[in-house]
Design a binder for these strands. Sequence first.
RNA 1: GGAGAGGUCGCAUAGUCUGGUCUAGUGCGCACGCUUGGAAAGCGUGUAUCCCGUAAGGGAUCGGGGGUUCGAAUCCCUCCCUCUCCGCCA
Length: 423
Amino acid sequence: MLDIALFRDDAEVIRRGLERRGEDASIVDTIRLLDVTRRETLTELEALRATRNTESKAIGRASDSAERQAKIDAMRVVNERIAVLEATLSQTEAALDEALNLVPNIPSDLVPDGADERENVVIREVGSRESDFDEPLPHWELGTALGMIDFERGVRMSGSRFYVLTGAGSRLQRALIQFMLDFHTSRGYTEVYPPFIVAEKCLWDAGQLPKFKDNLYRDVEEDFWLVPTAEVPLTAMHAGEILAAEDLPRQYVAYTPCFRREKMSAGRDVRGIKRGHQFDKVEMYKFTRPEDSPAALESMLADGEAVLQALGIPYRVLQLCSGDLGFGSTITYDLEAWAPGCGEWLEVSSISDFGSFQARRAGVRFRPEPGAPTEHVHTLNGSGLGLPRTLIAVMENYQQPDGSIIVPEALRGRFGADVIKAG
RNA sequence: GGAGAGGUCGCAUAGUCUGGUCUAGUGCGCACGCUUGGAAAGCGUGUAUCCCGUAAGGGAUCGGGGGUUCGAAUCCCUCCCUCUCCGCCA
């Protein structure tokens, strides 16, 4: 959510931001109008409430019963007007909230203009894509041959896009998760195990609602929603708090499954474990002082890249253009791992600075100086990394001509073996 | 799931029965000042958040929402949460 003050003071910045994203900017005028109505209504309402407060006290003190009754009658009239204004105010505020919740964040000046993902910019490519042999196998063939992935039984249990990791597959994913958690912890993040089911409020805080309602799973009877990413509970964890300035930045890393009710187009990404309704992810998250978030973004990017480097996976860094930016983000880098078997780049991480967008929704603030007014913190999030796709990258990059898979050195201790062979 | 007790301005509590003197008292903690060679103690002052307003000032918030009333921390309804006991359970 953007600051309502920005709509008053510099609406042009918002319009330009919306246009860069390729969105209609007319909502800005709607919001400005509602804001004026709200303030006019509030001013009159509060003046009347002030009258009522004073008069009610006078009534309490009044000894003459005729005078007392006259005041009570007068207050009845005032109260009728108050009721009308209260109704207007609550309608106006509801409309204002609804509109504000639909406005995406403003792209940073550093973000290149562009209409969609085709105009994202490759910033660098790291590692060699050279392969030792001509036809590397895709992970679905490797996984089946080595007893790491069971597609049929996953589909039998849960339907299309579900799979079972078995034996070395399951173990390798677990080794990756533990490796990533330990890795980020050693670099200054605090490990967190959050709820995987949260109240609706948390999804508003993180900016998932109202816009992405169709992508969320929820309990029919109770206020329970499955998290689509650990970003949701991590954002909501400090909702409504005023964080101690000396505790900033706060840096968290969390492993969670992620549940997404995507309507996946038939025929696209159907093979393998690249895309599903359930997947695992290790997420990095930071709360920072506003002035610190640009540097925090760069260091989070470095943290994501370091995982890929430690695993020895070739990757590239993309800067998203304005038209491909996520709803709450001001600036985003994607990390894409090279998967030689599929022959494609796989998005394994998306690293963003959300500015004060989520902090304002969730009410996360800090006090810069003792006695100073509170300010919203900035929040940043990034995958560190997404599991099934990192698993794919490991399998496909480390496959050998004899059909086995070498276990990356960084994972050997946790995995408990150097190589994955059939049988 | 059942029964009971609770949720008050950092923490702990008073106030709720008997609605107006609650612009919410007190203790602790914290900050500043006095005092002191320095400190402790003592004394004094201050110490929530948000909204409207250039300001003066005003308003809102006693877990959330709704109601009764001229007026609600206080009465009524409802939801949420916490604690104790019972049941169930990994």
